[in-house]
């Protein structure tokens, strides 16, 4: 802690939330904690199906070919009784590349289904360290290709298909969008990168600032990237699809929405990615919320700053989906 740089203070409402929930999850996640974290459901959990039923959303699980043709699952989520063709969202969930399932981040896109009439396809990509890079991003890409190929039967207008993900899912969404560009994959109308995890190199000021504090600190981030990349982390042997921050050519990518907090590890890589997109002539909208720790909109959705974050994000999605 002694070497930690001075960081922007947390927003007071977020600081208060951390004071209550800080003991649920330590700031630093180390590799030996992965099995335990995978077991433990948070005490605040509601079951997915209860949440979906309450929101009037139908769920259909489909087994599809993933990376190398192995079977993976996706869930197709849409408003109950929805007919016809409308916007689509391909979703890649968060969890540091090591945790979570395809319903993590449900609250991010629930309103896109109920209010914008979107069909969401959310993919159960395989997790590191058991399935290291390129499994996660290649599973996601396979899911995107499947979604585009089945757009008609899913009720998705191929011109209004976007990709979205938060945290590790944001990094996977950015990497998947790049794969789609480079391998002649589906055209995307937009990429929603919610506090995305983009850079394995651990060299930003923000990662040095968020060390032993907040949510998903420097140690946790190294744990996640090391699980994904093993000894390759931080070396020249990392693809741009695994760590999109390394890409030098961002031209031809879909318009991007990027948001993050000013007090999180990903701040600097997220701001740099938005800047690089603009420099490559790609449209991007960037929001850095002052005093926000990682994932604050999920942990403290009642706060003024979380509501502002969600409103800005939903506004972008509404514009891109043509709602």
């Amino acid at each position: 802690m002694a070497d930690t740089l001075k960081r922007p203070p947390f927003d007071p409402e977020l600081e208060a939330t951390l004071a209550l929930l800080g003991d649920q999850l330590p700031p630093s996640i180390t590799p030996e904690m992965i099995p335990l974290l995978r077991q433990g459901a948070s005490p605040f959990d509601l079951s997915v199906d209860d949440v979906l039923a309450e929101a009037g959303i139908a769920r259909r699980d489909v087994t599809i070919p993933g990376h190398d043709g192995d079977e993976i699952q996706v869930s197709v989520l849409s408003r109950q009784g929805r007919t016809g063709i409308g916007p689509g969202v391909f979703h890649t969930h968060g969890g540091g590349m090591i945790l979570g399932d395809r319903f993590v981040g449900l609250q991010h896109f629930l309103r896109w289904i109920t209010e914008f009439d979107a069909v969401v396809v959310t993919v159960e990509y395989r997790l590191a360290p058991e399935f290291p890079d390129p499994f996660p991003v290649r599973d996601c890409y396979a899911g995107l290709v499947w979604t585009a190929e089945h757009a008609d039967e899913l009720g998705i207008d191929p011109d209004r298909l976007i990709i979205a993900g938060a945290s590790a899912g944001g990094g996977l969404a950015a990497g998947t969008a790049m794969l789609a560009r480079d391998e002649g994959g589906p055209a995307l109308a937009g990429q929603v990168l919610i506090y995305p995890m983009l850079d394995d190199r651990d060299q930003t000021i923000s990662t040095a600032q968020i060390d032993g504090v907040g949510v998903w600190d420097r140690t946790s981030n190294i744990t996640g990237w090391s699980a994904l990349l093993g000894d390759r982390r931080g070396t020249a042997d990392v693809s741009v699809y695994a760590a999109p921050a390394r890409a030098t050519d961002l031209s031809g990518l879909p318009p991007a929405f990027i948001d993050c907090g000013s007090a999180e590890v990903f701040r600097d890589e997220d701001v740099a990615y938005a800047t690089a997109l603009w420099q490559a002539g790609v449209q991007a909208e960037l929001h850095v919320w002052p005093g926000g720790f990682h994932g604050f909109d999920m942990m403290a959705p009642h706060t003024a700053i979380a509501q502002a974050m969600v409103a800005a994000r939903d506004s972008w999605v509404a514009r891109v989906l043509g709602d």
Binding site: A16, T17, A19, L20, L21, Q24, L25, L37, A41, S42, P43, F44, D45, L46, S47, V48, V51, G94, G95, G96, L99, G100, D101, F103, V104, L106, Q107, S167, V215, W216, G295, M298, M299, A300, P301, H302
Partner: peptide, 23 residues
Amino acid sequence: MQELVGRLTALDPEASETLKVVA
């Protein structure tokens, strides 16, 4: 909805959580 982090929700209606309220 297995989250990486919990979500701040209402306190237990049955158990006194004075320290949390104060904090």
